[in-house]
Design a binder for these strands. Structure first.
Lengths: 105, 105
DNA sequence: CAATTTCATCGTATTTTTACGATAAAGGAA
DNA sequence: TTCCTTTATCGTAAAAATACGATGAAATTG
């Protein structure tokens, strides 16, 4: 017996905490500047805030804010190294994101 | 010869129009209400605006606005049917999204 | 035709996001 | 210690997103 619902291109079979976490990741990466930061980190892992400030046409404080959004959403992680902070992609969370998107889309 | 850059969990190998389009899709789906609409459409393809209004704790005009955002980002398509509008997932665009995310993450 | 249903759009208020300059904290260099 | 570098945070202004009620257009109903 079938449901009568035609097959869909995706299931979107997700809910609760997982859904909220995924939506927050979507929101964080759904900004052109922040997406650029992510791209940059692929080829410049461990770079410091100043490198990212140089990349973007934005003030240092604004970049710092964008980095905070990416960090809180789980896309990146920052490590204090002396007076600087070095950033890397958060590989574990990105893998989670990739897997979830693969499951539901 | 290698680049000296350690392997990454993703390539994010995308640019230009494709990147802009993808970021806009991320942004549109990065909202809890809009994500719920997408989930609903999986199981209720062809439903009308009023069905979605009934789903969300929002005014009709607000829901209409969210539907517009999803439509403009390419997530859904609406078809006027008499006085109503019926909505479906935009399968082609969703397939594009899924493929792109799969490529770069 | 008149009344009703459905929904997109308009005008507007509120909230959130984005952006900047200034400041302060923390570490390294002189 | 005294500077200098680096960067997060604070305060605030501007822009964008979100939300609502009211209105009007379009199609169906009576």
């Amino acid at each position: 017996m079938t449901t009568g619902i035609p097959e869909s291109c995706c299931t979107l079979d997700i809910a609760g905490q997982d859904q909220a976490r995924l939506v927050e990741m979507f929101k964080a990466i759904g900004n052109p500047h922040r997406f650029e930061v992510m791209k940059f980190l692929v080829t410049h892992p461990g770079c410091i805030t100043g490198d990212i400030v140089a990349l973007l046409p934005l003030a240092q404080s604004t970049v710092s804010q964008h980095l905070k959004v990416l960090r809180q959403a789980g896309w990146i992680e920052g490590e204090v190294e002396g007076p600087a902070t070095s950033y890397c992609l958060h590989e574990e969370n990105i893998a989670w994101f990739s897997a979830k998107v693969g499951e539901i889309f």
